[in-house]
Design a protein around this nucleic acid. Structure first.
Lengths: 225, 225
DNA sequence: CGTTTAATCTAACGAATTTTAGATTATATG
DNA sequence: CATATAATCTAAAATTCGTTAGATTAAACG
């Protein structure tokens, strides 16, 4: 019968996406690409690996149609092939987090519970940011901010943070975010800010998580306010 | 430095879920389990395979904590370890469908566009079903209906449909659904109903898709109305 | 208590993936 | 045009995974 054959074909196609998501390295690359487009060079240094290997994994992601490339001079610029890729990654991580104890334990080791902003909904935070009651700080590299960022967020990359403290309000609470739950940049930012007397906390969510929860993000507005 | 090691560990855990989703057979088993708990025997016959192989794949799914088992007499009863598993499956399929042409083409071959209900939102359908303006028909096996079904749906398994036609209204439009976009039961039901003069159409969505869109489902109410 | 049924476990083979290294392509630059 | 750079392609080694078959466990039944 033809029915079984067709069904096998359908599940095989879905499994192509699953296969792409079955390697830790590819997941890390996808997470980076969910922040915005990047060259192979950037991806290699930010994921801490070997160019050849990164290139091979990017090939696999390309074959699963999760990423796309274009040439720019002698650089190849990769990008996620849609916002749904980041959202898929976020739901995959949520499922992993709720079912795998090992992951929860490792996450607890990674982030300091002290630095975490707790007990406040996305909507409330958004409203407070809109009114200017809190300052939402995007501590990722500026190119990622330009690609997409949380509403009302100001860009201040982690490595410039120390030189730009004067531009920050000392009376308002600061909420820092970065690439998502597995990224440490916002945690480091909070550490630095608190040491200098600011009231600061971090949230887990990045742009993909924000989108996966059905909220909207901005892009390419003025990074300094 | 310890940071890289921890990050590798985190992504490795997420990749465990990805690995579980990387095999067509496992995806099919998960989809069946998303409809409700089933024995290995049932899973084997419904997925059309070999018991030993199905058992091996179930082991992999268990190790990824996506399914759980309990013994019942001499049967092992498997179940998805949460509603989020079905929702993950639904988003995975959505991503596959929007990025892989091959999948869209195969789907077109599978389902007759004629039978498909088009241009109506989930909310509208729900409202019409609530008011009784349409009859929503769950054509899956009754055990799956009991486990969870769309609001206001009536159970009428495909293989009983022919004997129960008297119980159906000939004036109201009938909307049939089954396990999801890859399942043909609702399509066959629509074929049969139309041949007997009923106004019938199918929708793609099953319980998991319904949930993944943020809607609610019912369970264990009276199947006959 | 031996037999049947349902399912798992173990071992083994082949297929597919990951990783590494060397050769190659495409573009920009002096 | 030779050279440097960015990245890919190809091939081989190491590893993992899917599949199959035979042996085994665990519960139910006569």
């Amino acid at each position: 019968m033809k029915e079984r054959q067709l069904k096998d074909l359908l599940y095989e196609q879905v499994a192509r996406i699953g296969k792409a998501l079955s390697s830790p390295k590819r997941l890390e690359l996808l997470e980076l690409l969910a922040q915005g487009e990047k060259t192979v060079e950037t991806l290699t240094s930010e994921s801490g690996g070997d160019v050849k290997l990164v290139s091979a994994h990017l090939r696999a992601l390309r074959e699963a149609r999760l990423v796309e490339v274009r040439r720019e001079g002698r650089f190849m610029v990769y990008r996620a092939s849609g916002a749904d890729v980041g959202a898929l990654l976020a739901t995959l991580r949520d499922v992993a987090e709720s079912h795998l104890v090992e992951l929860r334990l490792a996450l607890e080791q990674l982030v300091d519970a002290e630095a975490q902003l707790t007990g406040i909904s996305h909507e409330t935070l958004l409203e407070q940011a809109r009114r200017g009651d809190v300052l939402v700080l995007d501590v990722r590299p500026e190119s990622e901010y330009r690609s997409a960022h949380l509403p009302f967020a100001r860009s201040m990359p982690l490595d410039e943070l120390e030189h730009c403290l004067d531009a920050l309000p000392s009376d308002k609470p600061i909420v820092a975010y970065c690439r998502g739950p597995f990224c440490l940049m916002s945690e480091q930012a909070v550490g630095l800010l608190r040491a200098r007397g600011f009231r600061a906390a971090r949230i887990d969510d990045g742009v993909s998580e924000w989108l996966a929860h059905g909220l909207t993000v901005d892009s390419s507005t003025d990074p300094t306010h």
